Simulated assay, not measured.
Amino acid sequence: MTRPTRSQTVLAPPAKAAIFLVVTVRPSAENDIRELLGDVSGLVRAVGFRVPDADLNCVVGIGAQLWERLYGSPRPAGLHPFRALEGERHTAVSTPGDVLFHLRGTQLDVCFELAYQISRRLSGWADIVDEVHGFKFFDERDLLGFVDGTENPEGIAAVDAVTIGDEDAEFAGGSYVLVQKYLHDLDAWNTLSVEEQERAIGREKLTDIEIPDELKAPNSHVSVNTITDPDGTQLQIVRDNMPFGSVSAGEFGTYYIGYAATPDVIERMLQRMFIGEPPGNYDRILDFSTAVTGSLFYVPTAGFLDDQPPHSSGDQPDSGEPPEPDRSPNTSSDNPSDGSLAIGSLRRTGTS
């Protein structure tokens, strides 16, 4: 049967606020999460109707292990658990994640209300293992002080960058999303001169102009994250990064979120960042930014979520009698932070 291909709002207008929820689903809760996934679009409409100008939307991603529990096979060709990378000095960690809820809009209040309504539905059968509240920082800058996302593709190029096509026809119209939470050592970063910071990033700090190739450091963030295919065509993704932080906790960071038609592109960028090409030429920014989470998800079409297929066996996986639900409140991970593929004006996010 051909699945509906109406897409989620992966390409959205610029957001001034966002909440990222990464969730793990408890055993025997498959029916509950399926019901919630089918209801997300209705929750967005109900909350967003109260403040139409807030442009509220929510993208849902499903992790590899939960996909197996909910749908069996086939599964999206590129879907697998996030692969940790260990370089000479820095590590890209892999952390648990069954579902990603990426909430965004022009106001934090509607994002918070939607997150609250989702959390109510999760209570007793799933746990929020990471929660990050992001905000726009001045003129689209990160907390390192640089404009974030200058090289995001636009228009048809953006659609092509994030949309699965005929190469995986069963899942055409969907996308992949990879998330990492980076914590910055601002004290160390701010000891650098502006010129040293610009060398690490590969752009001028004030003007956002890219440093010429002949002057750009080979381990700058821009150099490392610029990759091409064999014919020299630059491979692109769409980033929707957001700054976050807690002044009292001394926590300052960037929530990295990259959408792509295949995770191969993002994974190659991370390989170059953490391992280096050649090995040892790692991204200079990692000396000041530490990845503390890492998860990969498939973003199904909105039509798929509204009309989900049964598990490939025809039934839910047999896990025995469901236990009595634990109605204790959801909690975040050890590093808490308070801080449908529609085409619109694209957010200039992700420093590259």
Rank of each mutant, 00 (worst) to 15 (best):
F137S: 09
R69P: 01
M242P: 00
D307L: 01
F20R: 13
S289R: 00
S73K: 13
I156G: 03
G155D: 15
R120M: 12
D98V: 00
E267C: 04
V162P: 09
L85T: 08
I128N: 04
G149H: 01
P279Y: 05
L296Q: 15
G280S: 09
F252P: 03
V247Q: 06
V40N: 03
A84S: 15
G202P: 10
P81Q: 13
Q197S: 12
L178C: 06
G276V: 08
S220I: 02
E88P: 06
G276L: 05
A92M: 09
R6E: 14
V47L: 04
A249S: 12
P323N: 04
L103H: 00
G250P: 02
L11M: 11
N225F: 08
L215I: 00
W189D: 06
F171H: 12
V177R: 04
F297M: 05
D168R: 14
W189E: 07
P96M: 11
S248E: 15
G253W: 00
D168M: 10
L21R: 14
G232E: 10
G97T: 08
V40R: 03
M242I: 03
V51F: 01
P317E: 07
G87I: 05
D264V: 10
S73W: 08
I227C: 07
A260K: 01
L108M: 13
A84N: 06
D185M: 02
S246R: 09
E196I: 00
D53W: 02
R284S: 15
D168F: 03
H102L: 14
R3S: 08
G42N: 15
G350C: 07
D326V: 08
L43H: 09
N330Y: 05
H80W: 04
R239E: 11
G78T: 06
L183Y: 03
E154M: 05
N152D: 06
L37E: 13
A92G: 08
L206R: 14
S289E: 07
S319K: 10
V265I: 15
